[in-house]
Protein backbone atom coordinates (compact mmCIF):
# COMPACT_ATOMS: atom_id res chain seq x y z
CA UNK A 1 0.00 0.00 0.00
CA UNK A 2 2.87 2.31 0.84
CA UNK A 3 4.47 1.61 -2.51
CA UNK A 4 1.19 2.26 -4.26
CA UNK A 5 0.78 5.61 -2.51
CA UNK A 6 4.31 6.58 -3.49
CA UNK A 7 3.60 5.46 -7.04
CA UNK A 8 0.51 7.65 -7.24
CA UNK A 9 2.74 10.66 -6.66
CA UNK A 10 4.71 9.64 -9.74
CA UNK A 11 3.28 11.66 -12.63
CA UNK A 12 4.14 9.16 -15.36
CA UNK A 13 2.63 6.25 -13.44
CA UNK A 14 -0.56 8.13 -12.57
CA UNK A 15 -1.14 9.31 -16.12
CA UNK A 16 -0.33 5.81 -17.37
CA UNK A 17 -2.82 4.29 -14.96
CA UNK A 18 -5.44 6.85 -15.93
CA UNK A 19 -4.97 6.26 -19.68
CA UNK A 20 -5.10 2.50 -19.21
CA UNK A 21 -8.24 2.64 -17.08
CA UNK A 22 -9.90 4.89 -19.66
CA UNK A 23 -8.86 2.50 -22.44
CA UNK A 24 -10.33 -0.50 -20.63
CA UNK A 25 -13.53 1.35 -19.71
CA UNK A 26 -14.00 2.55 -23.29
CA UNK A 27 -13.52 -0.99 -24.58
CA UNK A 28 -15.95 -2.46 -22.05
CA UNK A 29 -18.59 0.21 -22.44
CA UNK A 30 -18.30 0.53 -26.22
CA UNK A 31 -22.00 -0.20 -26.88
CA UNK A 32 -22.98 2.54 -24.40
CA UNK A 33 -20.39 5.14 -25.35
CA UNK A 34 -20.45 4.78 -29.10
CA UNK A 35 -22.77 7.47 -30.51
CA UNK A 36 -23.45 5.57 -33.75
CA UNK A 37 -23.30 2.03 -35.10
CA UNK A 38 -19.65 1.67 -36.20
CA UNK A 39 -20.61 -0.23 -39.34
CA UNK A 40 -23.53 1.80 -40.63
CA UNK A 41 -22.55 3.53 -43.85
CA UNK A 42 -23.81 6.78 -45.26
CA UNK A 43 -22.02 7.01 -48.59
CA UNK A 44 -23.59 10.35 -49.40
CA UNK A 45 -21.54 11.86 -46.57
CA UNK A 46 -18.17 10.17 -47.24
CA UNK A 47 -15.05 11.81 -45.76
CA UNK A 48 -17.07 14.51 -44.02
CA UNK A 49 -14.95 16.60 -41.65
CA UNK A 50 -15.54 16.60 -37.88
CA UNK A 51 -18.76 18.37 -36.92
CA UNK A 52 -20.96 18.74 -33.87
CA UNK A 53 -22.94 15.66 -34.85
CA UNK A 54 -19.91 13.55 -35.77
CA UNK A 55 -17.18 14.75 -33.45
CA UNK A 56 -14.33 13.03 -35.31
CA UNK A 57 -15.90 13.11 -38.76
CA UNK A 58 -16.91 10.34 -41.18
CA UNK A 59 -14.69 7.85 -42.98
CA UNK A 60 -14.37 6.81 -46.62
CA UNK A 61 -17.61 4.81 -46.42
CA UNK A 62 -19.47 7.43 -44.40
CA UNK A 63 -19.10 5.66 -41.05
CA UNK A 64 -18.68 7.58 -37.79
CA UNK A 65 -14.96 7.72 -36.94
CA UNK A 66 -15.49 8.22 -33.19
CA UNK A 67 -17.70 5.14 -32.95
CA UNK A 68 -15.18 3.10 -34.89
CA UNK A 69 -12.35 4.24 -32.63
CA UNK A 70 -14.40 3.31 -29.55
CA UNK A 71 -15.17 -0.16 -30.93
CA UNK A 72 -11.59 -0.42 -32.17
CA UNK A 73 -10.43 -0.23 -28.55
CA UNK A 74 -12.14 -3.60 -28.04
CA UNK A 75 -10.23 -5.20 -30.89
CA UNK A 76 -6.94 -3.75 -29.67
CA UNK A 77 -7.45 -4.89 -26.11
CA UNK A 78 -8.78 -8.27 -27.10
CA UNK A 79 -5.69 -8.91 -29.20
CA UNK A 80 -3.44 -7.40 -26.55
CA UNK A 81 -4.77 -9.44 -23.64
CA UNK A 82 -5.04 -12.69 -25.61
CA UNK A 83 -1.47 -12.34 -26.85
CA UNK A 84 -0.10 -11.55 -23.41
CA UNK A 85 -1.99 -14.38 -21.70
CA UNK A 86 -1.06 -16.93 -24.35
CA UNK A 87 2.57 -15.83 -24.60
CA UNK A 88 2.96 -15.66 -20.82
CA UNK A 89 1.42 -19.10 -20.29
CA UNK A 90 3.67 -20.76 -22.86
CA UNK A 91 6.71 -18.76 -21.81
CA UNK A 92 6.28 -19.27 -18.06
CA UNK A 93 5.68 -23.01 -18.47
CA UNK A 94 8.64 -23.62 -20.76
CA UNK A 95 10.88 -21.19 -18.88
CA UNK A 96 10.09 -22.78 -15.52
CA UNK A 97 10.60 -26.33 -16.77
CA UNK A 98 13.76 -25.29 -18.57
CA UNK A 99 15.25 -23.50 -15.59
CA UNK A 100 14.13 -25.99 -12.94
CA UNK A 101 15.19 -29.22 -14.61
CA UNK A 102 18.07 -27.96 -16.77
CA UNK A 103 19.77 -30.57 -18.93
CA UNK A 104 18.59 -31.52 -22.38
CA UNK A 105 15.17 -29.84 -22.08
CA UNK A 106 16.87 -26.60 -21.12
CA UNK A 107 19.30 -26.79 -24.03
CA UNK A 108 16.53 -27.59 -26.53
CA UNK A 109 14.24 -24.77 -25.34
CA UNK A 110 17.02 -22.21 -25.17
CA UNK A 111 18.44 -23.03 -28.62
CA UNK A 112 14.94 -22.70 -30.04
CA UNK A 113 14.53 -19.31 -28.37
CA UNK A 114 17.92 -18.31 -29.83
CA UNK A 115 16.57 -18.87 -33.32
CA UNK A 116 13.29 -17.08 -32.66
CA UNK A 117 15.12 -14.14 -31.10
CA UNK A 118 17.51 -13.93 -34.05
CA UNK A 119 14.50 -13.65 -36.35
CA UNK A 120 13.20 -10.07 -36.33
CA UNK A 121 9.88 -10.23 -34.45
CA UNK A 122 7.54 -8.29 -36.69
CA UNK A 123 8.92 -10.08 -39.76
CA UNK A 124 8.08 -13.47 -38.26
CA UNK A 125 4.59 -12.23 -37.35
CA UNK A 126 4.10 -10.98 -40.92
CA UNK A 127 5.34 -14.30 -42.29
CA UNK A 128 3.01 -16.32 -40.05
CA UNK A 129 -0.06 -14.22 -40.82
CA UNK A 130 0.82 -14.32 -44.51
CA UNK A 131 0.65 -18.12 -44.56
CA UNK A 132 -2.10 -18.64 -41.97
CA UNK A 133 -4.35 -15.97 -43.44
CA UNK A 134 -5.27 -12.53 -42.12
CA UNK A 135 -7.74 -13.26 -39.32
CA UNK A 136 -8.01 -11.97 -35.77
CA UNK A 137 -7.14 -15.36 -34.26
CA UNK A 138 -4.16 -15.80 -36.55
CA UNK A 139 -2.86 -12.37 -35.56
CA UNK A 140 -3.09 -13.42 -31.92
CA UNK A 141 -1.38 -16.72 -32.68
CA UNK A 142 1.41 -15.05 -34.63
CA UNK A 143 2.08 -12.43 -31.98
CA UNK A 144 2.02 -15.03 -29.19
CA UNK A 145 4.50 -17.13 -31.18
CA UNK A 146 7.01 -14.30 -31.14
CA UNK A 147 6.02 -13.13 -27.67
CA UNK A 148 6.51 -16.21 -25.46
CA UNK A 149 10.27 -16.21 -25.99
CA UNK A 150 10.97 -13.24 -23.73
CA UNK A 151 8.85 -14.69 -20.92
CA UNK A 152 10.62 -18.03 -21.20
CA UNK A 153 14.02 -16.35 -21.01
CA UNK A 154 13.03 -14.15 -18.10
CA UNK A 155 11.38 -16.92 -16.08
CA UNK A 156 14.22 -19.35 -16.73
CA UNK A 157 16.77 -16.85 -15.45
CA UNK A 158 14.71 -16.14 -12.35
CA UNK A 159 14.04 -19.82 -11.67
CA UNK A 160 17.77 -20.60 -11.87
CA UNK A 161 18.27 -18.18 -8.99
CA UNK A 162 15.23 -19.19 -6.94
CA UNK A 163 15.71 -22.96 -7.17
CA UNK A 164 18.90 -22.65 -5.11
CA UNK A 165 17.03 -20.93 -2.26
CA UNK A 166 16.67 -22.69 1.06
CA UNK A 167 12.88 -22.73 1.05
CA UNK A 168 12.94 -24.70 -2.20
CA UNK A 169 15.40 -27.19 -0.75
CA UNK A 170 13.19 -27.38 2.34
CA UNK A 171 10.08 -28.11 0.28
CA UNK A 172 11.93 -30.83 -1.59
CA UNK A 173 13.25 -32.25 1.70
CA UNK A 174 9.78 -32.73 3.11
CA UNK A 175 8.86 -34.66 -0.01
CA UNK A 176 7.11 -32.17 -2.31
CA UNK A 177 7.07 -33.30 -5.93
CA UNK A 178 8.58 -31.15 -8.68
CA UNK A 179 5.30 -29.75 -10.11
CA UNK A 180 4.22 -28.71 -6.62
CA UNK A 181 7.58 -27.10 -5.88
CA UNK A 182 7.50 -25.20 -9.17
CA UNK A 183 3.92 -23.97 -8.91
CA UNK A 184 3.75 -23.25 -5.17
CA UNK A 185 7.26 -22.26 -4.25
CA UNK A 186 9.24 -21.18 -7.29
CA UNK A 187 6.76 -19.37 -9.55
CA UNK A 188 5.23 -16.99 -6.96
CA UNK A 189 8.72 -15.69 -6.33
CA UNK A 190 9.49 -14.93 -9.97
CA UNK A 191 6.18 -13.27 -10.85
CA UNK A 192 7.03 -9.59 -10.26
CA UNK A 193 9.21 -9.11 -13.32
CA UNK A 194 6.71 -11.18 -15.31
CA UNK A 195 3.93 -8.73 -14.42
CA UNK A 196 6.09 -5.84 -15.56
CA UNK A 197 6.92 -7.62 -18.78
CA UNK A 198 3.23 -8.39 -19.36
CA UNK A 199 2.23 -4.74 -18.99
CA UNK A 200 4.88 -3.62 -21.45
CA UNK A 201 4.00 -6.63 -23.62
CA UNK A 202 0.38 -5.47 -23.77
CA UNK A 203 1.56 -2.18 -25.27
CA UNK A 204 3.78 -4.07 -27.68
CA UNK A 205 0.96 -6.39 -28.76
CA UNK A 206 -1.45 -3.49 -29.36
CA UNK A 207 1.19 -1.73 -31.43
CA UNK A 208 1.99 -4.90 -33.38
CA UNK A 209 -1.69 -5.60 -34.09
CA UNK A 210 -2.08 -2.06 -35.38
CA UNK A 211 1.03 -2.50 -37.54
CA UNK A 212 -0.23 -5.77 -39.01
CA UNK A 213 -3.66 -4.29 -39.64
CA UNK A 214 -2.02 -1.26 -41.22
CA UNK A 215 -0.21 -3.61 -43.61
CA UNK A 216 -3.54 -5.25 -44.44
CA UNK A 217 -2.57 -8.42 -42.57
CA UNK A 218 -4.64 -7.94 -39.44
CA UNK A 219 -8.28 -7.74 -38.64
CA UNK A 220 -10.36 -7.69 -41.81
CA UNK A 221 -13.09 -5.17 -42.67
CA UNK A 222 -15.65 -4.21 -41.57
CA UNK A 223 -14.37 -4.92 -38.02
CA UNK A 224 -13.05 -1.60 -36.74
CA UNK A 225 -9.33 -1.75 -36.01
CA UNK A 226 -7.16 1.31 -35.38
CA UNK A 227 -4.39 0.07 -37.65
CA UNK A 228 -6.75 -0.69 -40.52
CA UNK A 229 -8.41 2.72 -40.07
CA UNK A 230 -5.00 4.32 -40.54
CA UNK A 231 -4.52 2.45 -43.81
CA UNK A 232 -7.72 3.96 -45.12
CA UNK A 233 -6.64 7.31 -43.70
CA UNK A 234 -3.38 7.16 -45.59
CA UNK A 235 -5.25 6.92 -48.88
CA UNK A 236 -7.14 10.15 -48.21
CA UNK A 237 -4.28 12.30 -46.90
CA UNK A 238 -4.89 15.88 -47.99
CA UNK A 239 -8.58 15.18 -48.64
CA UNK A 240 -9.64 14.01 -45.18
CA UNK A 241 -6.74 14.20 -42.75
CA UNK A 242 -8.97 13.35 -39.80
CA UNK A 243 -9.08 9.75 -41.03
CA UNK A 244 -5.36 9.36 -40.29
CA UNK A 245 -5.00 11.70 -37.34
CA UNK A 246 -7.57 10.30 -34.87
CA UNK A 247 -6.96 6.53 -35.05
CA UNK A 248 -3.22 7.21 -34.83
CA UNK A 249 -3.73 9.36 -31.77
CA UNK A 250 -5.76 6.55 -30.18
CA UNK A 251 -2.95 4.06 -30.78
CA UNK A 252 -0.36 6.40 -29.40
CA UNK A 253 -2.33 7.25 -26.25
CA UNK A 254 -3.03 3.58 -25.53
CA UNK A 255 0.56 2.53 -26.07
CA UNK A 256 1.96 5.48 -24.13
CA UNK A 257 -0.40 4.83 -21.21
CA UNK A 258 0.62 1.18 -20.94
CA UNK A 259 4.30 2.04 -21.26
CA UNK A 260 4.02 4.61 -18.47
CA UNK A 261 2.19 2.09 -16.32
CA UNK A 262 4.80 -0.59 -16.97
CA UNK A 263 7.58 1.86 -16.22
CA UNK A 264 5.99 2.80 -12.90
CA UNK A 265 5.47 -0.86 -12.02
CA UNK A 266 9.16 -1.54 -12.58
CA UNK A 267 9.97 0.81 -9.72
CA UNK A 268 7.27 -0.62 -7.50
CA UNK A 269 7.62 -4.34 -8.10
CA UNK A 270 11.14 -4.92 -9.16
CA UNK A 271 13.73 -2.17 -8.94
CA UNK A 272 16.43 -4.58 -10.06
CA UNK A 273 14.64 -5.16 -13.33
CA UNK A 274 15.44 -1.64 -14.51
CA UNK A 275 19.12 -2.45 -14.47
CA UNK A 276 18.55 -5.53 -16.60
CA UNK A 277 16.71 -3.58 -19.29
Amino acid sequence: MKTFKRLLRNFAFTSGLLLTVVLILVALAAPLLSPFDPNVQDTSRRLEAPSRQHLLGLDDLGRDVLSRIIWGARVSLRVGFSVVVLAALIGITLGAISGYFGGLVDTAVMRFTDILLAFPGILLAIALVAVLGPKLNNVILALATIGWVSYARLVRGQVLKVREMEYVTAAKAIGARSPRVIVLHVLPNVMNPVIVMATLGLAGAILAEAALSFLGLGVQPPTPSWGAMLTAGRRYLGLANHLAIFPGAAIMLAVMGLNFLGDGLIDALDPKYRKQM
Partner: peptide, 10 residues
Protein backbone atom coordinates in the same frame (compact mmCIF):
# COMPACT_ATOMS: atom_id res chain seq x y z
CA UNK B 1 5.56 5.78 -28.26
CA UNK B 2 4.75 7.29 -31.64
CA UNK B 3 4.03 4.53 -34.15
CA UNK B 4 5.70 5.09 -37.51
CA UNK B 5 2.45 4.44 -39.33
CA UNK B 6 1.04 7.50 -37.61
CA UNK B 7 4.10 9.74 -37.61
CA UNK B 8 4.66 9.11 -41.35
CA UNK B 9 1.19 10.31 -42.41
CA UNK B 10 1.50 13.32 -40.06
Amino acid sequence: SMPSFWFGPL
